[in-house]
Computed example of a mutant assay.
Amino acid sequence: MRIPTVLAATALTVAVVSQPAHAAAAPAVVFTKIYYDSPGSPDFGKNSSLNGEYAQIRNRTKKAVSLKGWTLRDATKRPDHVYTFGAFTLGAGKTVTVRTGKGKDTGTTRYWNRSGGTYAYIWNQTADTGYLRDASGRLIDSCSYNSSRAAFRIC
């Protein structure tokens, strides 16, 4: 009778050992959407069209998160394609929309304040990747898309 008990305990130990020690924790702040093909584009960078292009970022936690110094960017290496958050706190469970064009910053919408024709757009119309990094430069989340059939990507 003792042998089956030992075998059962051994099988249980093997099953437990074969599982990963812990799953990677999902980031607290994530991309939820990138709207990369704004209505009306190409229209030579009208502000209304630039503001139709945006990225949304959500705080999935029950605590507010300071985004001061955090950056949002696309896949290019161009320094003018980096948005840096100033003093801004994203409330618990809240979403902020970062629009490409000009406007007045609020608690739910921030503006990249870009202008200058078709080169003012950030997000490529068919394929790109958005990167969200914290103030120390650590990658927090990314969102990629590769489609000319849609105007946005739910991340």
Rank of each mutant, 00 (worst) to 15 (best):
E53K: 01
D43T: 12
A64M: 07
A15R: 04
A25P: 10
H22K: 08
Y54S: 04
D37C: 05
T97V: 12
L67G: 05
S18H: 07
T61V: 00
W70E: 06
D105H: 12
H22N: 11
T61P: 01
L72N: 10
V82K: 15
K33E: 10
V65S: 12
R58S: 12
R60A: 09
P42N: 10
R58N: 06
K68G: 10
T106C: 10
T95M: 09
D43E: 10
H81L: 06
T76C: 04
P79M: 06
A25S: 13
G91E: 07
T89M: 04
I57H: 03
V65M: 13
K62H: 09
K94V: 02
S49N: 15
S41R: 07
P39H: 05
T97R: 13
W70T: 06
V29Q: 01
Y35H: 11
S41D: 08
G93T: 12
Q19R: 15
A24W: 03
G93D: 15
I34Q: 05
F44I: 08
S41V: 00
N47K: 07
T84Y: 04
Y36A: 06
V16F: 08
T89A: 10
A26F: 03
T106G: 13
V98Q: 05
D105C: 08
Q19D: 13
R60S: 09
P79I: 05
A26P: 14
Y35L: 03
P27N: 01
F44C: 14
A21K: 09
P39L: 03
R78K: 14
T61H: 01
L67Q: 02
A21F: 03
G45V: 05
T76N: 12
T71S: 06
K104L: 06
N51V: 11
S38A: 12
S48C: 11
A24Y: 02
A92T: 04
N51L: 09
T97G: 07
I34S: 02
P39Q: 06
G107I: 01
Q56T: 06
A23T: 14
Q19E: 14
K62N: 14
H81Q: 08
R78E: 12
G103K: 03
G69I: 02
F85M: 05
G103Q: 05
K94N: 10
R78P: 07
Y54D: 06
P20Y: 01
K62M: 09
N51P: 14
V17T: 14
S38L: 00
A26S: 14
D74V: 09
V14M: 10
H22L: 04
R78Y: 06
P39W: 00
R58P: 09
V29S: 00
G103M: 01
D105N: 15
G86E: 12
A25L: 07
K63W: 00
R99Q: 15
S66D: 10
H81C: 05
A87R: 15
S48K: 15
A25R: 11
T100R: 10
T71E: 02
R58V: 07
Y35M: 02
F85S: 08
K68D: 10
G101D: 12
G69L: 00
S38P: 15
T76M: 04
A28V: 15
R73G: 13
V82Y: 03
T100I: 13
A23H: 14
L90I: 01
K102E: 15
T89V: 09
V16T: 11
V30P: 07
N51E: 13
F88T: 07
R73E: 14
A23V: 13
P20S: 08
D37G: 09
A23D: 14
